[in-house]
Every structure is written in structure tokens, then in C-alpha cells.
Design a protein around this nucleic acid. Structure first.
Lengths: 208, 208
DNA sequence: CGTGACAGTGCACACATGTTCACTCTCGTA
DNA sequence: TACGAGAGTGAACATGTGTGCACTGTCACG
């Protein structure tokens, strides 16, 4: 017995989460049956209840986990410093590519459940994205050149950038790691955010 | 009997489509059962097969229909002329708001099934969006001021614009018609596309 | 007028699902 | 060392599901 009681429980909990993640791939959370995941994990259906009261709660746990990796992405992005804007952008997109490649399952889950998931799941994801927008806005406010900007315009700009990131992530999900397609998506994303930043640089907030 | 045989069949076909659209709202296509829609329509389950060979095909028909309304949006957008760029943008966003408001069910369906739907459905939607990007790119090419642009850069720019439109549509889906929230989303979208176009105006394609 | 195509019915079946309950066995603790 | 908590079992249930089959009635057409 090299495993403690708690470790063993945690291990099957993880197995359940992984099974759910893998099974819901190519479909949706709502099309996931308790018995299916139980069979995949290798436990009897009723044992599922020892870990989650329902599939819905399993979904919420999965969202929580996925949002964690999303937050990790943001943290990583924040540390992507550089000399000029161009290198910052290039680095950020690289980080995005890396993360999506690495946590493919989680990002796929978020993409799928963002609109198709149950209400609680949808709201949690929406909150996560909003948070990203707000954080980016405050980050932008501390950058030089944004002194003439309205708070609201900064908010709108970050929404635009985050939106571009989301769409890029969604596109990346459809490509395989290291493929030319992935490279193309990444390059295009870099170009897009550059365009977008050229726009920002020449922007002039109208005083309200 | 004021209804012909064919009209009657078409009517229950429509009823099935509408029922599926309404029932899949708040969930997903994959979580839709044949018996459920049959009960909603008021026919016996097996009668469903007179109209569709399976739920999956029902889904494809719904996608087709939804993509039709998407194409209608594009057509409408194309006719939104104006003096300067600003009025074109304002008009286009207004059209988007109007259309999403009017065909809420279809756009919601697209948003939900874009990633959570079965493979065939996902691909059909992806093709529809790509088509929109290509069409916008050729439209942009005929505009003055884009002579120095690379074909590829034009393509990337339209992907960016279409992406912003998609995200705006998704945001609009969460607001109720005529609400202040809807107004806010629309206004922000106008600002975003303006920013984006300022970027485009100052863009300089690197010769490859 | 008759007849056949065919939308819709009703029953049947085999199967999957969520949840219940009483149970076993084993680790951690008192 | 004794025991209790609790992860996992296995049988049972009511219910929902897709689909097959024989059927009925009625509109359209020869």
C-alpha cells in the first residue's frame, strides 16, 4: 500500500474529471451520462456519487479547473515583457499557442460550453472572460501613451483585444500542434493584433 | 379543407423545426430527443421519420436555415452604403443588432452549435463564416485606399472584422431587445470597429 | 369512382439512464 | 487491537429513448 486513503480518492476523482473531459470532447457536457463516465473510469455507476452529487456539479468542477488554466494564461501573458510593442505581441501570441496546445482539453471544453452549457457553467465562463478584459484594461492604463484615453475607451479596447484572443484560441483548437495551419493562425493573429494596436496608437478619445 | 396535402406536410415540418429550435435553446442539439420534439409538435414519435431520417439530419436542416439568415445579414450589410466610413460602420452595426434581434433563435443556435454541435454541423458553420470573411475581403479590395495592401493582409483584416462581428453578435444574444445593455453592446461595437479601421487606415503591408 | 401513396397512429421491443438500498472490505484512528 | 467511516459493489426499480411493424384514414390522381 503505497497510497493513502485520501490520495486514492483524489486519484479516482481526477480519473472522473479526465474521463468526462475526454468523453465530452466532440460532443457536449449535457450529452454526458453518469454511467458512461463510470464505465470509462472503471467504477460502478453509484460510486460516482461519492465524488459528485450530479453530472452538473462535475461540469462546474470542470469549469473551475478550466478557468484556472485560463487564469494561468493571463498570468503568463502579463509577464511577457519586451522592448517594443511588436515583441510583446509576438510573445503573447506564442504563449497563447503554447497554452492552447498544452491544455487543449480545457480550452476545448470552454469553447464548447461557453454557449451550449448549462446556465451556471455559461455564467462562470462569461465572468472569467470579463475578468480578463478588466485586468487587461488596468494593465493598459499603466502603459505610456494611454493618458489621453477615457476609462471606457480603454475597457472597449481590451474587450476587442480579448475578443481577438478568444477567436484565435478557437481557431487554434481546430489545428494540430506544430502543423502549418497552427503556424498560419498564429502569424495571422500577430498581424491582427498589430493592426489593432496601430489603431489604438492613433486613437483619440472624444471627451464625453 | 383549405390546405393541400403538400402544404400540410410542410406545416408539420416547420413545426418540427420550430420545436427543435425552441427546445434546444438553453441546451444543445445533442441533448434533444426525438420523442421530446414529437411531443412538442403534437405528433407520435414515429411520424417524425416521415420528415427527417434522424435528429442529426434535423440539425443539418436547422444549420442550413440558420446560415440562410446569416447570408441575408451579409447581403443586407453589403447594401449599407454611406458617405464616410463612420456612417457605414454605424449602419452595419445597426443592421447586425436588428437581425440578431429578429432571428434570435437562429443566431443562438449557431452560437451554441459552432463548437458543441456534431462534426457536420460544426463544419457547415465554419464554412459559412469563412465565406463571410472572403466576401468581405473582396469588398474591401474594391474600396479606395487599399491599393497598397497585400491580398493576404486584406484577408487577415476581414477575418478580424468578421471576428469582431461574431463576438458582438454573441454579446447581443445575451441582451434583451431594446434594453440599455443592447444599446451599450452596439455602441461599444461601433467604437471597436472604428478603432480597428483607424488601424487599417494607417497600416502598411510589408512587401513579402 | 376507385385506388394507391403516404402522413400520422399505436403497440411493442430492447436498451440506456438516474437513483435507491443494503452490502463488503479496508484504511485510519482512538 | 477494535471499530467506525467511507470508497466501491451489485442488484433492482421506474422511466426515457430509438426504432420496427402493422395499421388507418384521407387527399390526389388515373
Amino acid at each position: 500500500m503505497t497510497e493513502s486513503r485520501g490520495e486514492r480518492k483524489e486519484r479516482t476523482r481526477r480519473a472522473i474529471l479526465d474521463a468526462a473531459l475526454s468523453l465530452s470532447e466532440g460532443s457536449a457536457l449535457v450529452a454526458l451520462s453518469l454511467r458512461q463516465v463510470a464505465k470509462e473510469v472503471g467504477i460502478v455507476p453509484t460510486a460516482f456519487y461519492r465524488h459528485f452529487p450530479s453530472i452538473e456539479d462535475l461540469g462546474l468542477a470542470l469549469v473551475e479547473e478550466s478557468l484556472d488554466t485560463l487564469r494561468a494564461l493571463l498570468r503568463e501573458l502579463r509577464h511577457t515583457a519586451g522592448e517594443d510593442a511588436a515583441t510583446i505581441i509576438d510573445g503573447s501570441v506564442s504563449v497563447l499557442v503554447e497554452q492552447v496546445r498544452q491544455d487543449h482539453a480545457h480550452y476545448g471544453f470552454i469553447a464548447r460550453e461557453r454557449f451550449a452549457g448549462p446556465a451556471g457553467v455559461r455564467e462562470a465562463i462569461a465572468r472569467g472572460i470579463e475578468l480578463a478584459e478588466r485586468e487587461l484594461a488596468t494593465d493598459l492604463a499603466h502603459l505610456p501613451g494611454t493618458d489621453t484615453w477615457t476609462d471606457h475607451d480603454l475597457q472597449v479596447l481590451s474587450a476587442l483585444i480579448v475578443g481577438a484572443m478568444v477567436i484565435t484560441a478557437e481557431r487554434l483548437l481546430g489545428t494540430s500542434p506544430g502543423s502549418p495551419a497552427e503556424q498560419r493562425v498564429a502569424d495571422d493573429a500577430r498581424t491582427q493584433i498589430r493592426m489593432l494596436l496601430v489603431g489604438a496608437r492613433n486613437w483619440q478619445s472624444r471627451t464625453p
